[in-house]
Design a protein around this nucleic acid. Structure first.
Lengths: 109, 109
DNA sequence: ACTTACCGTAAGCCATGACTGACGATTCGA
DNA sequence: TCGAATCGTCAGTCATGGCTTACGGTAAGT
């Protein structure tokens, strides 16, 4: 619950379909902005703004190379979300187990 | 990538702060709507609407008990997101490793 | 049967944020 | 030095969605 607020920017960043498409494109490897905007149905400035959000959320990182900037996935940022969902899943399973046990207990009488 | 579209409702559901608060409250166990809305700074109908979104996303489930409806976390729905982020994390690590290797290769000449 | 409690739904208001077009900065090549 | 390419930022527009109030429906208790 302490990092409950930490994952907010990351999960809110991934909520947008266009940003998810960008992330999907980056799974193959680093890419400059123009190459990312090409297949997408939005303008290049829009992609730039999305990359800003993703960067602030810690999900992607940049490496300037001459006139173009290569964006890539940031494993650390993804890992944060991953851990949060792991914990949430554990609690969900525990609550489920308790509910099942309570149900069994109730059925006994 | 086949389930890339599957996780959309779940991740978009968790993007809202109020819905995350509801999910956090449900970590302790099942709860009726009124008990959930109590501590929250929004009205009960608002919580009802959020629970509808969370249910449609497969993150929570309901069990009517008399006049009240008990909501609980759905481990299956959480697991979907968990798996997606696991895969994404793998790809991020792979891309990172490739980048590191390419960098080492470049440094060699 | 009547009252009370708990809850989902509908309509409307309003703020957030995604997108575009225009502009300026930086870098490489000629 | 000059031109072209790549990109970030800004201002403005517009749709999405979260919230409230009011209403109706169902179940338990008296």
């Amino acid at each position: 619950m302490a990092n409950g607020v930490t994952i907010a920017p990351a999960i809110e960043a991934l909520a947008d379909p266009t940003r998810r498409a960008i992330v999907e494109a980056l799974r193959a490897g680093p890419s400059p902005v123009g190459a990312l905007a090409g297949p997408l149905p939005v303008s290049r400035p829009a992609v730039s703004q999305h990359l800003r959000v993703l960067t602030d959320a810690g999900l992607v990182e940049v490496t300037p190379k001459g006139t173009r900037r290569y964006y890539r996935l940031a494993p650390g940022g993804v890992d944060e979300l991953r851990r949060y969902l792991d914990d949430l899943w554990d609690d969900a399973l525990a609550a489920f187990a308790r509910a099942a046990e309570a149900e069994a207990q109730k059925r006994k009488d």
